[in-house]
Amino acid sequence: MKTPEPTACHEMEALLPAYVEHSLPAAEAERVAAHLPTCPGCQLQVTQLRALSDDLDAALPEVPRTALRANFIAMLEQQKAQLKPEATFAAPPAPPEAKVVSMWPTALANNWLRIAASIVLIAAGVLLGRNLHWGAQPPADLAANTRPAHAELAQALTGSNGNTVSASDRIQLVTNSSRQNEPGDPTVQVLINTLNFDPNPNVRLAACEALYRLRDDSRVREALVHSLPIQTDPNVQITLIDMLVSMRVRRAVPQLERLAKRPDALPVVRAQAEAGIGKLI
């Protein structure tokens, strides 16, 4: 058996991806099929391309945080608010009232239902997606460098050491705080305080997730239940509901019932609370 010409292999390199995905015209596919048995190098390429293709097909998508949706909804509401006076005052030839009215309550109700459904899905996806990796250890240097003792953590988070810490840095602190902890860790109390009192909803959300990682600690369930009436941000509310449901915390039901009736809660939050009650009882 003679060694294949290097030029032949070079030509093969361009053809093999199409060969593997079965999109080569018959004549070229035949040429590849004739070359392959004579050439271990090209055979290896085919094996690798197939494996790579399978791995690409199996790759999981990145899931955005729920904050993305919250920001989008906020932006949309802002744009709608800007639009309304224009529609009334600029008065284009078509009847503007019809346009304004039609956006209100029926269209909105429909959309809220749609948002509600998708938030549930996304939130579940976030939980599941993160769950898979929560067990994994962070790189050792990162954990060592950024994990202060609970007292320092509390100081840093509340700014009581005189330094103001930005929201994104607080998120970082909170996220790293729960990587390695032992039973009775005072970090849990720090995180509970952050969940209830940090002014930034994204930091509170990070505290939720950090606490969820520490859910084996007996204080966590209680704290999540008690935090429900304190929270006003819809993302934090929905995250709490999802966590309580996934941890099957039945004593959250009375709080969920109250939340489901709260007039200041968004319809989507109230619907989620209702759904949560349904799953817990």
């Binding site: 998508p61 990145e62 899931v63 955005p64 993305l68 949706r69 989008f72 949309l76 744009q79 709608k80 639009l83 529609a87 346009k99 039609s102 956006m103 269209a107 909105l108 959309n111 749609r114 948002i115 998708s118 996304i122």
Partner: peptide, 19 residues
């Protein structure tokens, strides 16, 4: 100008776009 109709488009595309 029916801006609410962007919501279903957001639902459909924000995940893929984010990816």
């Amino acid at each position: 100008d029916d801006l609410d109709q962007l919501v279903p488009l957001f639902e459909r595309y924000h995940g893929p776009l984010f990816n």
